[in-house]
Nucleic acid binder design. Structure first.
Lengths: 210, 210, 210, 210
DNA sequence: GATGAATGAGCATTCATTCAT
DNA sequence: AATGAATGAATGCTCATTCAT
């Protein structure tokens, strides 16, 4: 008890009454995120979000003036989630080939937490009608492509891949493969996914190397 | 009483006299299909469907008692659309390899009419919450898988593919590849799609043959 | 087959295709009557009437231009039903006291066919808002009152009842008693109704005689 | 901070500031009650209730999620109204005979406010199709019967009524009489009702005493 | 920050009625 | 007489948003 807690709940000790504004916002975003995964954008209700968080639905509009604002928060959160993995393994700490393989193995994690794919799919459809979301998803894809092509380029420099490798095309193919696998993750068994994933990776490596 | 031809088609040319019941139903399904592609299930309004067809929205409920019934009509239509291509080229009329390549080339057609992919994506998300749709999509996938594995098996018999080919895995990989390509068709240039498509096909053929 | 049928279906032989207009009208009235008893005026649907009769709902409007017309037919039918019993026993054929007792015993028949009471109750409530129905029900009550007061008057003449009997009041009291019993017929046991009925009749006779 | 009285009642007199939630609920129930009396359940519209109260019809659904909930409120209110009179005169404060007579005299009050009977009649018809309402009305009748039979029993003990009185049958007969009178209250003159009522009461008393 | 009450625009659905055939 | 198709006016209900407290 005497030990001072340096965690984020520090503020909670000053005002134990409730979470701070930023925390409440994050709480609402997380619940909205889950609800979108459960019911889709079609079934997302601001009232349901507020209720699950335990506040009045009018209060939600204090934190997020409009439903769109809340959705924007979810989008930001999702993009951050998708960008995170690439920050874990730095090119310096692993070989290019290992990093390519890591791309494919990430999908196995999605088997446990499929919400991410579901919400991303929902978002992809939204992007067709909402240019703002289209732009964000495009940037996300561009970032991913940059990362991958840089990875391949570095692999070429290291001699891991063949010298005449088209890194741009390679990055695109990797992305296409993973998107294809993602499209078949939900509702299917993990071994099945891994078999397909392994075969695609094998074909890719074959093409990367010679 | 005299031998005058009073067939209905004759009338149709002179005075349209309104479509038949089945025609109106098809009309409504097509408009609903387009509207889903435009606005998503989220934005599908029976009033909008009726308006675009040019009838009172109450009349729509004469043909389709509930919105779900209309959606079911759209689902049936879509499934029929997706099943049609495989009926065109029969295994007897083309080599196994050509048929595999045909699978990939079909995607280029989707560039012109992307509605099919959009509605299919919408449906895939719906399937997460609607078991009836999930079942239909699953059956569609199963049919596709059967067709492909049979194709590969026949190719093995013909000596086009290597003898120890895992036709089940092969079919799954083809499907995953195409799903991946599909996921990137909308909003992207056709040449880009073709480059990726060609590369994946090349890798696949490499694996199929030796 | 050679024997000519002189029954009402005579017409049916000429046009065996279906019932005559009057028959169809009567058919529709009977079904509407049953449906009102089942679902109330609130739940009466012209479509349901037509469907149960086995014709298209548009055809119903050929026989009864509006729903109100159909209801009017039901009202007429009900009034006729309620007026019928009094025509069976003629004053000449039975003593006044027997005829009074007959009034009470009619209720037992309603236990078997409670539709009549239900529809009458529905109609009574309708009468509050529909002057036309109010007028008809009023006339029905007036006819009943006339019949009863004439009955009592005749009983006084015959020496069956006391000379200073207020026949007008007597008729009203009989009607009130029977309406009270009617109000408790539905859903209750017949013996229970008979006990109450017998007691009220006994009290009435006591008052009629001395 | 100074000792200024800022109680809400003060404000209510100056600026009504809108009714409390419970008040608004009661307001809606009363208006619905009146509207049912005017137009019947058949003609009850949530929009009309809201409009007469002076609120948006969506607000009505804030207080009563469904129309059924509102109707339930009306039913509760009506039952409470019908149960109230018996709580006024306690057996200890009046003789048994006076209490029996009080039952009959209550009807005269209904002449001024016939809504109660109308809504009760509407409810009785609803009870035929709605078991929940049937149950409530049955309980109401049972309570009434209990009260009356206890009343008669007490009268027998006091020597006011004859010793061999069937209190159960007596209670049923009183109820039947009053239901009969009720059935004829609406649209008829009060003197007329009183004449019938007095005669029935006289016959009843005659039976109760010897 | 939070809440109860209110609002307007909209939604799928119902239903009596009409009309050309 | 009968029917399929169509229509307009409702009807109960939903939901994001607003606002005074």
């Amino acid at each position: 008890m005497s030990k001072i807690n340096i965690d984020t709940p520090q503020k909670d000790e000053i005002s134990p009454a409730g979470p701070t504004g930023a925390e409440r916002r994050q709480q609402l975003i997380l619940v909205a995120y889950q609800l979108i995964a459960e019911k889709g954008f079609e079934g997302l209700r601001t009232r349901a979000v507020a209720e699950r968080v335990g506040i009045n639905h009018a209060t939600l509009h204090y934190h997020f003036p409009t439903k769109e604002d809340l959705i924007q928060g979810v989008v930001d959160y999702l993009i951050q989630q998708f960008s995170a993995p690439h920050a874990v393994l730095h090119p310096a700490q692993a070989s290019s080939l290992e990093l390519v393989r890591a791309e494919f193995s990430q999908i196995n994690q999605l088997h446990q937490v499929p919400e991410m794919i579901i919400v991303l799919d929902e978002l992809s459809l939204r992007a067709l009608r909402d240019p703002a979301i289209a732009k964000l998803l495009n940037e996300m894809d561009k970032g991913w492509h940059s990362y991958l092509s840089e990875l391949l380029r570095s692999g070429v420099r290291q001699g891991a891949f063949r010298v005449d490798l088209d890194v741009d095309l390679g990055a695109m193919v990797i992305m296409t493969m993973i998107k294809g696998i993602r499209a078949d993750v939900i509702g299917k068994s993990q071994p099945r996914t891994e078999r397909i994933s392994a075969l695609l990776l094998a074909q890719l490596e074959c093409w990367l190397i010679d």
